[in-house]
Simulated scan of single mutants.
Amino acid sequence: MAIKYYLILITILTFLAFGWDKRLAKNGKRRLAESVLLILTFVGGTFGALFGITFFKHKSAKKTFILKLILVVAVQLALIFLLKEHLTDQ
């Protein structure tokens, strides 16, 4: 049950981080590092990142960022698959 609340929280936090970074970009201020956005995505904020990219139209045109995001999601899927296989073997 705690994992559900964690995922909800990290999803919201990641979404807000994308929005905050977009706002900083529009105002010409110092922005969040891409690594921060990618780490938030990796630790469970994948849906927040996808919603943030779509809703704020932020980072969607930056191909290198999108490639890194795809890599993060691929690693997440691989880890989920490995954990599922490991836990079901026991």
Rank of each mutant, 00 (worst) to 15 (best):
L67E: 14
V73N: 10
I12C: 15
A49V: 01
K62M: 02
H86C: 01
M1S: 10
D89I: 08
D89R: 12
A78I: 15
L7M: 04
G44I: 01
F55A: 07
F47M: 11
T41Y: 00
V75A: 03
I3F: 01
L69G: 11
T88R: 04
K63G: 02
I8K: 02
S35T: 07
K57Y: 09
R31Q: 07
K29R: 06
S60D: 11
K62E: 04
L32Q: 08
I10E: 02
A17L: 14
L32Y: 11
F51D: 13
L24Y: 08
V43H: 03
G52I: 13
I12Y: 00
F56T: 04
R23Y: 15
V43A: 12
E34R: 11
V72T: 03
Y6S: 04
L7C: 10
S35K: 05
G52S: 10
T46D: 01
K63L: 12
F42N: 02
L38G: 03
G19S: 15
T41W: 00
W20F: 07
L71S: 10
G28W: 12
F15W: 15
I39D: 03
Q76M: 13
L9E: 02
D89A: 15
D21W: 10
A33M: 03
T54E: 14
L83G: 12
K57E: 11
G45E: 00
F18G: 08
K68W: 09
G45M: 02
T64N: 07
K4M: 11
T46F: 03
L67F: 15
I66W: 05
L16Y: 05
K4H: 13
L67T: 08
I12R: 00
T88K: 04
N27R: 12
I66K: 09
L40E: 01
A74L: 06
S35A: 06
G19D: 13
L50K: 06
S35P: 00
K84T: 15
L7E: 00
F18M: 13
G19P: 08
V36W: 06
L83Y: 14
G45S: 01
F56L: 07
H86T: 15
R23Q: 08
V75C: 09
H86E: 10
K62I: 14
I3H: 01
K22C: 09
G48R: 08
D21G: 10
L71Q: 07
F55D: 06
T64Y: 09
F42I: 10
W20G: 00
G45F: 00
I12D: 07
D21E: 09
L77D: 01
Y5T: 14
A74R: 04
V72E: 01
F81Q: 12
T54N: 13
T46P: 02
R23E: 02
L24V: 05
F47K: 04
Y5K: 14
V73Q: 09
I70G: 07
L83A: 11
T88M: 06
L13V: 10
L67W: 11
R23C: 13
L87E: 00
Y5H: 14
A78Y: 01
V73H: 10
F65M: 07
I70D: 01
V43W: 07
I12V: 14
L83M: 15
